[in-house]
């Protein structure tokens, strides 16, 4: 049997609220989500806002970029980098971060929360 996953789409903010090639932090109930607009690639990504290295709420303030074409974010604290696609830590650590789906409709950015 294939497990059905249901996604709740949550309206986070409008497209213009997010800086080009950068991130913002979105509040969803008690959860903090980092939302990134990778303008250069015309892509949107969302991950947990907490950096698992020292449990700091900071990823939304990190610089984004690519490594061998893999989109990534660097934590402002110690520059550990994480894939925006898989959440995997790219700087050789064991920790990974959670990622969320994102869609844009009529200028509004929605983040997909899996139930």
């Amino acid at each position: 049997m294939i497990a059905e996953k249901t996604i709740t789409w949550f309206a986070a903010c409008s497209v213009t609220d997010v800086p080009a090639n950068g991130g913002v932090c979105v509040k969803y109930n008690d959860t903090q989500i980092a939302l990134f607009h990778f303008t250069r690639r015309d892509e949107w990504y969302a991950t947990q806002n907490e950096c698992p290295h020292r449990m700091q709420m900071a990823l939304s303030r990190g610089m984004i970029g690519t490594q061998n074409d893999e989109p990534k974010v660097a934590c402002p604290f110690h520059k550990k980098t994480f894939s925006l696609v898989t959440g995997e830590c790219l700087s050789g650590d064991e920790c990974a971060i959670k990622t969320y789906e994102v869609k844009v409709e009529e200028g509004i950015v929605y983040i997909g929360i899996e139930d």
Binding site: N21, F38, R40, R41, G62, M63, G65, T66, Q67, D69, P71, K72, A74, K79, T81
Partner: peptide, 15 residues
């Protein structure tokens, strides 16, 4: 600068 002199999408080392 990236478009004219570089390639790809940049990163925390060159920004």
């Amino acid at each position: 600068v990236l478009t004219k002199l570089g390639k790809g999408d940049g990163c925390e080392l060159c920004k």
